[in-house]
Design a binder for these strands. Sequence first.
DNA 1: CTGAAAGCGCTTACAG
DNA 2: CTGAAAGCGCTTACAG
Lengths: 364, 364
Amino acid sequence: MPSRNTEKPITRKDIAELLGVSVSVVSRALNNSGYVEEKKRQKIIRTAEELGYVPQPVAMSLQERRTKQILFYCKDLNNEFNLEMYRGMCKTANERGYMVVMNGVLSFARIRDTMIDGIIMPNENLTEYYLEQVGKNYYLPVVSASYCNPVNLPKSVPLVEIDMYRAMEVGMQYLFHMGHKRIAFGFPYSTTNPNSRLLAFKEQISLKSDRRWQDWVVSVHWLDKRDDIRLMAFKEDMEDNSLKMEEDFFAKGEIAAQLFQERKMDATAVICFNDEFALGMMRELQRMGVKVPQDISIVGIDGTRARRYVTPLLTTVDANPQRQGGECAKILIDMIEKKNTKYIVHQSVRLLEGESVKDLRSRR
Amino acid sequence: MPSRNTEKPITRKDIAELLGVSVSVVSRALNNSGYVEEKKRQKIIRTAEELGYVPQPVAMSLQERRTKQILFYCKDLNNEFNLEMYRGMCKTANERGYMVVMNGVLSFARIRDTMIDGIIMPNENLTEYYLEQVGKNYYLPVVSASYCNPVNLPKSVPLVEIDMYRAMEVGMQYLFHMGHKRIAFGFPYSTTNPNSRLLAFKEQISLKSDRRWQDWVVSVHWLDKRDDIRLMAFKEDMEDNSLKMEEDFFAKGEIAAQLFQERKMDATAVICFNDEFALGMMRELQRMGVKVPQDISIVGIDGTRARRYVTPLLTTVDANPQRQGGECAKILIDMIEKKNTKYIVHQSVRLLEGESVKDLRSRR
DNA sequence: CTGAAAGCGCTTACAG
DNA sequence: CTGAAAGCGCTTACAG
């Protein structure tokens, strides 16, 4: 088993010298570009194979000034939503010959050390911050996922937007339709956070309830700092403290279940910020002996793969994160390759029925 | 908002010309290596900042003949185990300044187009095949995860081995301890597959049962081709059919539940090939009205994060895939950097108690 | 159809 | 402490 471990790797120059031709010809033959005498081409290709020649993608990248890599700027795949997005962008990127990479740590400084042609940002808040911090000095094409949260972005950044305001409406209206009126909202931030899902919830709950909307929100925020919408996603950039900043929606959901019970809320249903939060809440309620959906109904938002694991199957508002990821990749690659592309893509949401909501209409 | 989009990026040469020094000095100043007059260094750094200079990592990679990227050779993160491994290797790699990348498609041919310093193989079967196919002509350091399955590898490939034979023993013995004797095995391949978990199951079940071991195996194999241990992981390499080749253990687990019911097996417990299979089986049993663990106990193998989502919490044999991934990354990076490293690492397993096993002892 | 030359952006002995 | 030079492995006008 000869290994090339210690030997110097074969280059195009080696092949050229062996065959008594120039590297230009070798390059043309191997790349199948430009004129090469047919017999010579054959011979070059055969020789390359025999010598075990392997191209050096780094040298090609330098020459062609492109890496065929795009960065998904998120810490490792810590939450189910990002994971789905990653799957979607991976598929699309691959079809176009690109690879999606992740730094594994959120640090703007690190981006410049990474061999990439462009960046996909997981949300608009991070994008806003990124553009403020490094956007002026450093150009790379950027595409951002977006959820209709309030930010101030230069319009030069394409957005792939899921209307989470609408998602909340869809979820609430489904619950109304099923006969629910007393509906709680499981929310992983402070109630002062101007999140689109929270805004929509306020709006919707007031249609059916006379109580203050605050009475219906189960807000889980351990750290005050987490509630700053600007800090929640990239605090680590400031305080090299990346491990602490994982957002664990599942764990927050579990805590929400405890708060829900402590407060003896008389809701018949809970709609949650996202699926992972919903799964946490559901699991903890079940652990405490509460039956879902017999005693309480639960609805998530996102449509991640994890929802299929549980019993009862989680009812959710499907935002199709895979499609969103794919669209982000498509647009980014279009930008990189200087093709025309859309600057805003809206993606629709739809209710995905599971088994976690009780039909209260049949009761009367 | 000035963007460098259209402008040519600043290089070290630009800085050098502007300051009337050589690129060598600029390089030394920016890299903080070698002698540079202190005042000059300051000035160079300041100027670089003002001009919005951004280093070209590709050029550095070419020069230094290293990419600081390592490949995890798996299709996107399709199964929970690989996902955990990825998380572990990501963490370790990051601490050492490396990035873990994935091609998103299994194709040996594609590896050579990827800018990497080494490869982590997800299992020994794939490694064996890889070495047969391209190992002779193409050298890159390789580390392989391993599960004590029968393969023929040159000993030059370091293994990070989890003894799945032992894991099965641990799971079975726990069930025995809890008073179970009639135990089924949920297996995603044919019973002719020489998998270490299957071998251990045969051994263990014969300790408590007089029936043939085959009577206790629920084997789910849709496609004949999938059963070939060699084909199951890389068929796509031969038949550009990558989408079809996803292994969906969860779905197989669901089917296993149906087979289990159809066959009216009188087992009191099922031990499953892995957690995902166990989750699928559990969910489908619950859907059919079977209570876990009251009617049937379930044990998984792996200890993936997904097990926390469900009720009852899945009892499993924890193989710590994160640690395995981390160890793979560590060893690979040691090899890349020519440090001494171990050639075989054995990782122990341990039972992780959940709520999915009924204690039959209290009954008598 | 071919090959010498310049270039991608950086690094690093080496001679001053 | 500095800078000219060679080099990393490849590509691509351009002159023959």
